[in-house]
Amino acid sequence: MSTGLIIALVVIVAAVVVVAAALARRARGGNGGRNLRRRFGPEYDHVLARHDGDTKAADRELTERLERHGGLRERPLEPAERERFEARWAAAQEHFVDSPREAVAEVDRLIADVAGARGFPDGGQYEEQLAALSVHHAGNVQGYRRVHRAAATTGTAGDGSGADTEELRAAMLEARDLFADLTRSDQRAPVSHKAQRSHRPHLFQRHQVAGR
């Protein structure tokens, strides 16, 4: 076999190896992205939008969240703790009719307190607490984000009327799914969004928040 032929074969083999390695990396990245999308659901879309559609950046951020918080073990609530938290939610819900902004601010604090009691980072570290919650309660974490934003935003409708109140009500309604998830009696595994809608405690009924 001539030297030229040997060199040609070596070049071909090297090219095949390089292509195979590239395809393997792409396959691993694609599967990783699909796994992240499946795990995080709507939170994946939120992060992707924040990165202007850059899937690599979104995957990197969510992978980092998993590395930081994936090993967190949630502490079950004691019955007395759960009752106190549910009483606070009921009081905030009743208070919404007269003072919607104060009620939403209380719900924001309440979710932070419940999450802290379950073993998540302290509520004073909102971003870190939100990141940890997104790993374990991805389907409902948007409710916390929305109510926190609503609580921090100063509206123009100081009397609590019109569209401003509707936005606050919608934020509170969305936050109740995460609250229900964090305070449910069986805390061994996250509850699906569909299951929550069919098994919410009575204090989560929509008409109560709406003041009807």
Rank of each mutant, 00 (worst) to 15 (best):
V10E: 08
H46S: 14
L48M: 05
A20G: 10
R145A: 09
H137V: 10
G155E: 06
P190E: 03
V16R: 08
A195P: 02
A87I: 03
L77G: 09
A92Y: 00
E166D: 09
G70M: 11
T63I: 04
H51I: 06
R212S: 15
R65D: 04
A157M: 07
V107T: 01
A24L: 12
V18A: 14
I111G: 02
Q125K: 15
H51W: 06
G29N: 09
G53H: 02
P201R: 07
E102T: 06
H137Y: 11
G70E: 11
A49R: 11
G160S: 04
G162P: 02
G139L: 06
D108Y: 11
T63A: 14
I111F: 08
R212W: 15
R75F: 05
D54K: 01
A49N: 08
Q187W: 03
V114Q: 01
F85T: 00
L178T: 05
H199C: 09
A117D: 07
V16W: 12
W89M: 01
R37G: 07
L23Y: 13
G139C: 04
T183L: 08
A58M: 05
G160R: 04
Q93C: 12
N35T: 06
R25M: 13
L48N: 03
L203C: 08
E81I: 00
A92L: 00
L133A: 00
H46T: 12
G30C: 05
D113T: 05
A195R: 12
A132T: 03
A58R: 02
E64H: 09
Q125S: 13
Y44C: 00
P42I: 07
S185R: 13
R75K: 13
L203W: 14
E43V: 09
D54G: 05
A151D: 01
R145Y: 03
S198M: 14
R84D: 10
R26G: 10
R146S: 12
S99C: 09
R65F: 08
L173I: 06
L72R: 04
L62W: 02
V18G: 07
K56T: 15
P190G: 04
A80R: 11
Q187S: 14
E64V: 12
P100C: 00
R73E: 15
T165R: 15
D54E: 06
L110F: 13
L110D: 07
G4T: 12
D59R: 08
Q208S: 05
V13L: 09
L36C: 01
L62Y: 00
T154W: 11
